[in-house]
Amino acid sequence: MFIIVRHGNTFEADEQPRRIGARTDLPLTAKGVEQAKALGMFFAARDWQFERVLVSPLLRTRQTADEIIAQMPCAPQKEAADFLREVDHGPDENLPDNEIIARVGQDALDAWERDAQVPPGWKVEPEARIAAWQELFAAEPASDSPTLLVTSNGAARFAVLADPRLREAAKALPSLKLPTGGFGIVIRGGQGLVLEAWGKRP
């Protein structure tokens, strides 16, 4: 089982959200820390003992992972995983959506959220990201314990595009986007990978 988590909030309630990516390393807000703790308590209540904890190198994801595993009785050390790093939004890095829409159009932004079609100027490397997820999913697990992955919105979506069954299940989702402090679950079933949940919050 793979538990895929998006980091907690990085903007205060009175701030205008912006597209922060690989070049904008913001910390969690107090609300973001609360979200991360809530995830940890939710997972601990289900007695999920993680075999591995893979984390993007960005601060917001590392802080989220720290708060999650602090709620667990015994958790493994975090492992940095560069394929979980947020995408680079190119000329749109750290800009609000209205400015991005003015440059690329609403259709381009919608296609990103719905189908992971990369807007012009963004640096994403979707093939490499999909290949990394495929390698992870194909690896023989050392135990039946789940793997926790803590990442960002732009990077998480490629998990559900890395397998035909997951991709088919994702067609029923309103968006590939995970909310802040939200998670998805991919499990190994008898017939292959199954998208058990996506976009859930505790």
Score class of each variant (00 low, 15 high):
residue 95 L to V: 10
residue 135 E to S: 15
residue 28 L to T: 13
residue 46 R to G: 15
residue 37 K to E: 14
residue 64 T to G: 09
residue 91 P to V: 00
residue 138 A to S: 15
residue 151 T to Y: 00
residue 180 T to L: 10
residue 184 G to F: 01
residue 62 R to P: 10
residue 35 Q to M: 09
residue 98 N to I: 03
residue 113 E to K: 12
residue 79 E to A: 13
residue 32 G to D: 12
residue 21 G to W: 00
residue 29 T to A: 07
residue 130 I to A: 06
residue 34 E to T: 15
residue 192 G to W: 02
residue 34 E to V: 12
residue 121 G to P: 00
residue 201 R to K: 14
residue 44 A to T: 03
residue 63 Q to W: 10
residue 128 A to P: 15
residue 38 A to D: 06
residue 170 A to Q: 08
residue 141 P to N: 11
residue 184 G to H: 02
residue 164 P to A: 12
residue 11 F to L: 14
residue 143 S to F: 03
residue 40 G to V: 10
residue 142 A to W: 04
residue 160 V to F: 11
residue 1 M to P: 13
residue 20 I to F: 05
residue 140 E to G: 05
residue 108 A to N: 01
residue 187 I to R: 15
residue 130 I to S: 08
residue 19 R to K: 12
residue 2 F to H: 13
residue 123 K to T: 01
residue 181 G to H: 07
residue 89 H to N: 14
residue 58 L to F: 00
residue 43 F to I: 05
residue 81 A to C: 12
residue 81 A to G: 07
residue 77 Q to T: 13
residue 197 A to Y: 09
residue 133 W to I: 04
residue 65 A to W: 11
residue 5 V to N: 06
residue 135 E to D: 12
residue 58 L to V: 00
residue 143 S to G: 05
residue 36 A to D: 05
residue 110 D to K: 10
residue 147 T to Q: 05
residue 164 P to Y: 15
residue 6 R to E: 04
residue 116 A to D: 02
residue 142 A to I: 11
residue 32 G to E: 09
residue 118 V to C: 05
residue 173 L to D: 04
residue 28 L to S: 15
residue 12 E to P: 07
residue 156 A to S: 13
residue 149 L to Q: 01
residue 128 A to M: 13
residue 30 A to G: 10
residue 2 F to N: 04
residue 130 I to C: 06
residue 83 F to G: 10
residue 110 D to F: 12
residue 68 I to G: 02
residue 87 V to F: 00
residue 52 R to P: 03
residue 116 A to H: 07
residue 159 A to G: 07
residue 119 P to I: 00
residue 143 S to T: 12
residue 105 G to E: 02
residue 78 K to W: 00
residue 132 A to I: 07
residue 162 A to C: 12
residue 82 D to I: 08
residue 83 F to T: 07
residue 92 D to V: 00
residue 142 A to L: 14
residue 84 L to D: 01
residue 33 V to Q: 15
residue 1 M to I: 09
residue 74 C to T: 13
residue 66 D to Q: 15
residue 112 W to Q: 06
residue 60 R to L: 04
residue 136 L to I: 09
residue 138 A to F: 05
residue 136 L to D: 09
residue 30 A to K: 14
residue 75 A to M: 10
residue 31 K to F: 11
residue 27 P to A: 12
residue 5 V to R: 04
residue 188 R to G: 11
residue 61 T to R: 02
residue 137 F to W: 14
residue 165 R to A: 15
residue 167 R to W: 06
residue 12 E to A: 15
residue 193 L to Y: 09
residue 144 D to T: 10
residue 150 V to Q: 03
residue 103 R to H: 08
residue 143 S to E: 06
residue 50 F to E: 02
